[in-house]
């Protein structure tokens, strides 16, 4: 199995990336799989280029493909202005519409205060529901104080185990390709 991990953290080192790594490790502990981690910072310019040109450059294409081809996805963003960051949303906007449909997804977010903890359920969860992903029940929000707390590890383990279980129990869904499996023109003529 293949797990794609997307982190929208901007600083170096990044607490968002740290959360993404810990979630990935917890998932791998529950079920053996290959992990590919994508730091969006390195693709920020390519993402804007893709929005303006209408296609993903040769640098960006493999990144989008690795998400589309994965069996599961961990998506982690910092909280900006009470939502996912613009860079995170730009990445989602550039993904193929069907790229995560039917795919198990674990959502995570970091923030400066616990008052933003509902960003997961008010911003990330509806976004991935719209994309027809299978969002696992436990999402992990980490405020500054949580890094010093004692409960974070248990929440991460629980989320990772849920994702691993969902990935193991699910046939990989592959989006239909209109080029290799085109519509029948008789159907189009018949208004179907």
């Amino acid at each position: 199995m293949k797990l794609a991990v997307v982190s929208a953290g901007l600083s170096q080192p990044s607490s968002t990336r740290l959360l993404a790594d810990r979630l990935a490790a917890a998932t791998v502990r529950a079920e053996e799989m290959d992990v590919e981690t994508i730091d969006l910072r390195g693709h920020a310019h390519h993402l804007v280029d893709a929005m303006l040109s209408g296609f993903a450059s040769q640098d960006l294409k493999p990144v989008l493909d690795s998400v589309a081809e994965a069996d599961g996805l961990i998506a982690v963003t910092p909280t900006y202005a009470s939502s996912y960051s613009g860079l995170f949303k730009s990445f989602v906007d550039v993904l193929d519409e069907e790229a995560v449909a039917g795919k198990p997804v674990l959502i995570g977010a970091t923030g400066g205060t616990a008052r933003h903890s509902l960003v997961l359920d008010y911003a990330l969860r509806p976004l991935f529901t719209y994309l027809k992903a299978i969002v696992v029940p436990t999402g992990v929000y980490v405020a500054s104080e949580d890094w010093a707390g004692t409960t974070l590890a248990a929440r991460i383990d629980r989320a990772g185990a849920e994702l691993a279980r969902e990935m193991a129990g699910r046939e990989k869904t592959v989006a239909a390709d209109p080029f290799t499996d085109p519509v029948s023109f008789e159907d189009l003529l018949g208004g179907r």
Partner: peptide, 12 residues
């Protein structure tokens, strides 16, 4: 305009 450079656009 505003997107990939002229050089990159010519490559791609």
């Amino acid at each position: 305009g505003g997107g990939p450079s002229l050089e990159q656009t010519m490559r791609e």
